[in-house]
Design a binder for these strands. Structure first.
Lengths: 203, 203
DNA sequence: CCTACCGATCGGTAGG
DNA sequence: CCTACCGATCGGTAGG
């Protein structure tokens, strides 16, 4: 009777669509994510599905946003207990590797998989992905700065240098796991990331 | 008159198709590479184009093969002058970074762009891409072994550790250049790669 | 290499 | 949320 019920149902449907869409996009890519396929998988009509988003691009943007929520929940939330600065950075690296290893999405880390796809295609979707990456790096950069202030890292530390090393290890780890199935890469990535945090700043 | 002329013409057409296809695939991906688009760009009919390859998958395999030829030509050939072992490894790193920086393909390094796409899609195309990566790593591994034997690298060196660090830097560099347009990443990548070659083996 | 065509699927709309 | 439809494009084939 009340509109509440239908509104709640619509929200639930939307959430179910996004849950599946994020998984699908991690494998097929954001472009390979088709409305027909998604609708069939969910037992819904195409137009019913599209009604929740309007256009495919809006769907893609919603998928990126949802993937970012999942990322923060899996990698950042478990770490907010540990003290800021270097301890939290170490905890983040662990959680980050766990997240890639345990493959939150069937296609591996959604963002590692997506970055290569949207790299060369200017538009709102690329901007949204970049925005997520930038936000994440800002958080890392801030923790590095705190570690420097606390004397846990050398005052000459270049945050960008550390972030480069961490991101590089994560991307390579995803690649090793998914293309080569080499699970020894997990420890290699952990070592590379610790080294980046231990290393004295170079010239 | 002689069949030679038409055979030669066909080979030339095939080469022209592949040249454009590799560029296109570096931006649109191997799946986003469509026969219709490719034919239109080249002023050719779809069936005329498809006659050279048979199926889209064969076209994709030919594109991967061609991309590998270009990669070896740009990164390996210029380096065969320098002495094997550590000197050649350093030269390879330089050439590799140049290749990514100068963007041999409009979409950046073809393989970095493609790996994320074929990662999760078993089949001949994925196998072909993986084969290229494996061949490249074998060559790197061999040069590392030569460097160890020559006493240029510590005897406890783990080749896989170095290869991980080099590959990680290259992937991250491609990402920094193409998603963020951050050209300072070029020097960061060079430093990270030298460090990987200088570093004493860790536990 | 071409024209002419095939069935399937794409994103999206009309109208309810 | 649905059915019914749109034009465009997909990979591919027939026949020359």
């Amino acid at each position: 009777m009340s509109p509440r019920a239908s509104v709640a149902a619509a929200r639930q449907t939307r959430a179910a669509i996004l849950a599946h869409a994020v998984d699908l996009a991690s494998v097929e890519g954001l472009a390979g994510l088709t409305i027909g396929r998604l609708a069939t998988d969910l037992g819904i009509s195409k137009s019913g599905l599209l009604g929740h988003f309007g256009t495919k691009e809006s769907l893609q943007l919603a998928v990126v946003e949802r993937a970012a929520e999942i990322f923060w929940h899996k990698v950042w939330t478990p770490v907010t207990d540990t003290p800021p600065g270097l301890p939290r950075l170490r905890a983040v690296c662990d959680a980050w590797v766990d997240y890639v290893e345990r493959a939150a999405f069937p296609g591996g880390c959604f963002f590692v998989a997506t970055i290569g796809e949207v790299d060369d295609r200017p538009g709102p979707v690329r901007d949204a992905v970049r925005g997520c990456v930038v936000r994440w790096r800002r958080e890392l950069s801030w923790q590095i700065e705190l570690a420097v202030r606390a004397g846990e890292l050398s005052p000459e530390t270049d945050p960008q240098e550390i972030i480069f090393a961490l991101g590089a290890s994560i991307m390579m780890l995803n690649h090793e796991l998914r293309l080569h199935g080499d699970r020894t890469a997990v420890d290699r990535a952990r070592r590379a990331m610790s080294r980046a945090l231990d290393r004295p700043p170079s010239t």
